Amino acid sequence: MTYADVLARAEADPDVVGVILTGSQARGTAGPHSDWDVLVVVRSHAPRWTTSLTPALDTAVLTVAELADVSDRWARYAYRGAVVLLDRGGIAELVHAQAALSPDEVDAFVRAELDGYINFVYRAAKSRRDGHHDLARLDEIEAGPWFLWTLFAIYGRVRPYNKYLRWELEHHPLPAPWTFERVTDLPSALFDDLERVARAHGYGDVYDAWDDLSLLRAGD
Rank of each mutant, 00 (worst) to 15 (best):
R196Y: 06
L169N: 01
L53C: 12
R123S: 13
L148I: 08
D220E: 14
L62Q: 12
A209Q: 03
R48V: 13
G81C: 05
L138I: 14
V158Q: 07
D205R: 08
A46D: 14
D193N: 08
D104F: 06
V106F: 09
E142K: 11
V83S: 11
L148P: 02
E195H: 02
V17S: 05
L67R: 02
R217G: 09
L186W: 05
P14S: 05
L190N: 07
G204R: 04
R159V: 12
T51I: 01
V19D: 05
H96S: 15
N119Q: 15
L7G: 06
D115S: 14
P160C: 03
E181T: 08
A10G: 00
T50S: 15
A125R: 09
E181N: 13
A218I: 04
D13F: 06
D130A: 14
E93P: 05
P47Y: 01
R48P: 04
A153T: 03
L57C: 04
A82I: 05
A153W: 01
L138A: 14
H33W: 15
W178V: 09
Y164H: 12
H172W: 13
L174G: 06
G131N: 04
A136G: 11
A60S: 13
R76V: 03
G18W: 08
R182L: 12
K126T: 13
L174P: 08
Y207L: 06
T22R: 11
A125G: 03
A198R: 05
L138K: 13
A82G: 04
L138R: 13
F180S: 08
H96K: 15
A92N: 07
E113T: 14
I154W: 01
L215H: 07
S127G: 03
W146P: 10
W210I: 10
E168D: 10
T184A: 02
A30V: 09
L190R: 11
L114V: 07
A8D: 08
A125M: 02
R217M: 11
P173W: 04
D193R: 09
Y161Q: 12
E195F: 01
A136F: 00
P47A: 03
G156H: 02
H96A: 15
D69P: 05
E170Y: 13
A26G: 09
T51K: 04
R199Y: 00
T150W: 00
